[in-house]
Design a binder for these strands. Sequence first.
DNA 1: TTCCAGGCAATAC
DNA 2: GTATTGCATGGA
Length: 217
Amino acid sequence: MPLDVFATEMLSAYGPQGWWPLLAHAGSNPTSTGRLTGYHPGDFTFPRSKPQLFEICCGAILTQNTAWTNVERALASLAKLARLSARGILSADDGTLESAIRSSGYFRAKARKLRAFSRFYLGLAGRTPSREELLGVWGVGPETADSIRLYAYKQPEMVVDAYTIRVLVRHGYCRLPLNYARAKRYCEARLPRSVQGYQEFHALVVEHAKRLRAARG
DNA sequence: TTCCAGGCAATAC
DNA sequence: GTATTGCATGGA
């Protein structure tokens, strides 16, 4: 079936995914009990503030090759230390920053990446960065740049990840070897150019791939 | 215990 | 351009 139909079917099967997850924010999950449940299905109004925008950027870096549950802990730890901001990260000493994000893995490299991004972010002075600018930041590759563009800055930028590649190949849309640029072009050429559509598609692909894996064991 | 998770940079061809 | 390796935690 065409890719846009596949997207519609995933939406029917799994429902809206509510990406990008954010730490508990005012008015959300009032009955939440301890676990961080920052998804907001069907609500595309986030981020609603600069701190939330910056949190998404940090999450995009921290989740590189890492399970989101480990990232949640790191973000919550940074927030608790009042370090989940560009100035907070840049003014923290190495030990503080590294121990705060320890749970997200590769913590020394990621601490360096958060600092590099924070410097870049302050230099933007609120402006939306281009994809090329983001790719010029140490520690920001194609997926991280696109995630930041799509979810933090709401630019119509398709995000591809390991799951997307697997799903496109498994369902016969593409053949290996399938690199990032080709997968991105393939999807963008077949889906309506829309921020909400791109956000939902990427999140649904991840959900779909996780279910496939679970079903296979 | 092994395998994997919402990558990226450095290096070597 | 493609292939390989180091980076590191926590859950299944």
